[in-house]
Amino acid sequence: MRLSFLEPLYTESGPFASVYLDTSRDIEHPDRAIALRWRRLREDLTRQGADRAVLGVLEKAVGADAELPGVHGQAIFAANGSLVMEGELPRPPARDSARYSTLPDAMPLVSQHLPEIPYLAVVVHYGGLPTATAHGWVTVEAESGTWPASNVAPGERLHHRVPVATWHQSAVRLGHRLDAWVRRTHGDTVVVAGDEWAGNVLVRRLPHALRDKVVRVGGPTPTDTGRALLEPQLDTVFRGRLAAHDQDLVNVFIGRRALDGPVTEGLAATVAALQRSQVAALLLNHPPGSSLRLWTGPQPAQLALTDEELVSFGVRAPREESADDALVRALVGTAAELVVVPEYALKLDEGVGALLRYTHPWTPP
């Protein structure tokens, strides 16, 4: 998973206010519930030392996703009296939280983007007889996205309607159009639902490479909910999977490790590689959480297990931070990727490892 979407967070200096709250609209009087949640978080931030300017910016942003229906959440970051980043969460946070700290609390936002699987959802509607002489129309709705974030931030949508009498010929042209779309968006999977006969016609006329990516699903197929097309089916198809790109990185790690290639495992060795901007992709069995701490300096690659180590590198006044915060900043600042892979698929020493960009000797400054 690439973390470039977090770059705006690190253009500001801290301290940062990081807010996660449930802004779901599936309850009675949602605005009242959101206001109550925010009031508790505001009091918490005030106790942590957040100033009025930051609190005012956050208050304006809370609930700004009111047009989004259903269950979801909101992540908001502010610093120096300015809104730094705001985004919708496909799931409400496990609990509302607010933190005022030197580094932004970004790992919960990253976790809500995982596993970041690019896909194309296709719904084929037709209610008539499956013959070329029948009257009526075949309607196709298609939408690209990256699961699960696209549940609340759907991508580009296509609406295609053709007479049923020409559906066999039109399906060929549409198939090539969908194939070009999937190539452009690097889609892993094409999820197809709707009428069985019309859907079969389309799938059989897709280019072979695209046909191999098709997953057929059933269930309700509403197209005007304001949420991702086929949202419930996407959850069933993708939960527990890695994106194809991330699975490739895991396979490369396994192959390199077997040959003593350019990889590292264990917290100390991986932190040392991050110090050198040597990490191409960080692999975790699970995010470290707030209990594990690292020492940091003002630059992304300035992180260590002890403050003495950073001082020896010339860092003045190192700060102890959550390992989650330090690792995310280091990954964004060094353009490294993140893969969270379950232990049953790849057990890592101390739950952490890395694919390396290079392995030649390095001496700290």
Score class of each variant (00 low, 15 high):
Gln278Trp: 12
Gly333Ser: 07
Leu89Tyr: 04
Val57Arg: 15
Gly219Ala: 09
Trp362Tyr: 13
Arg99Ala: 09
Glu309Cys: 04
Ala165Tyr: 01
Ala193Pro: 03
Leu229Tyr: 01
Leu230Met: 12
Pro364Tyr: 09
Tyr126His: 15
Ala94Asn: 06
Val271Arg: 01
Met85Ile: 04
Thr11Lys: 07
Glu196Gln: 11
Arg205Pro: 01
Val332His: 04
Val123Ile: 03
Trp181Leu: 08
Asn80Ile: 01
Leu68Ser: 13
Glu86Thr: 11
Thr270Glu: 11
Pro300Arg: 00
Val250Tyr: 14
Ala33Gly: 07
Trp38Met: 12
Ala78Gln: 02
Leu348His: 10
Phe77Asp: 05
Arg256Pro: 00
Val203Gly: 02
Glu343Phe: 09
Thr11Tyr: 02
Thr306Leu: 05
Leu6Ser: 09
Leu234Val: 15
Thr131Asn: 07
Val182Ala: 06
Arg184Lys: 11
Pro222Ile: 11
Val340His: 08
Pro108Trp: 08
Gly87Ile: 06
Pro15Met: 02
Glu320Gly: 07
Ala317Ile: 09
Ile27Lys: 10
Ala345Ser: 13
Leu41Asp: 04
Arg183Met: 08
Val341Trp: 08
Ile254Tyr: 02
Thr359His: 14
Glu12Gly: 08
Ala78Lys: 01
Trp147Glu: 01
Ser277Val: 09
Asp65Phe: 14
Val140Ile: 10
Glu308Met: 08
Asp22Glu: 13
His29Cys: 09
Thr236His: 11
Gln169Asp: 14
Phe16His: 03
Ala165Leu: 04
Leu178Pro: 02
Pro220Arg: 14
Val19Ser: 10
Glu67Val: 08
Asn151His: 07
